[in-house]
C-alpha cells in the first residue's frame, strides 16, 4: 500500500543528510486504558476495538502492545 506521507518524509530525510533510509512508513499510535476483569478479556475487547474501529483492515495493519504504567503498583 502506497504511503505518500511516508515517501515525502523519506525524501526529506535525504535532504537532511540521512541518506540511508530505505523505508519509512507513517502510522498511528493509540493509547488506550481499559477496565477489564482479566487480561484475556482486555485483549479480546482491544482486538475488537482495533479491528472494527481504530483501524480499517482494508488499508491498515495493527498490533497490540501492553504498556505498564510507570507508577502502577502490581496487583
Amino acid at each position: 500500500m502506497l504511503d505518500p506521507a511516508g515517501e515525502a518524509t523519506r525524501a526529506a530525510a535525504g535532504r537532511l543528510g540521512v541518506t540511508g533510509v530505505t523505508r519509512l512508513r507513517i502510522g498511528k499510535a493509540i493509547e488506550v486504558e481499559l477496565d477489564a476483569d482479566d487480561q484475556a478479556s482486555a485483549r479480546a475487547q482491544l482486538e475488537l476495538l482495533s479491528d472494527r474501529l481504530l483501524a480499517n483492515p482494508v488499508i491498515e495493519n495493527w498490533n497490540l502492545e501492553r504498556l505498564e504504567p510507570a507508577s502502577a503498583s502490581p496487583t
Binding site: M1, L2, P4, A5, A8, N56, V58, I59
Partner: peptide, 17 residues
C-alpha cells in the same frame, strides 16, 4: 459508505498529498 461496508475498498490520502 466504504467504512460501513456498503461499498468495498477504502479512500486514502491523495497520491501527491
Amino acid at each position: 459508505l466504504t467504512e460501513m461496508g456498503l461499498l468495498p475498498g477504502a479512500l486514502t490520502r491523495n497520491e501527491k498529498l
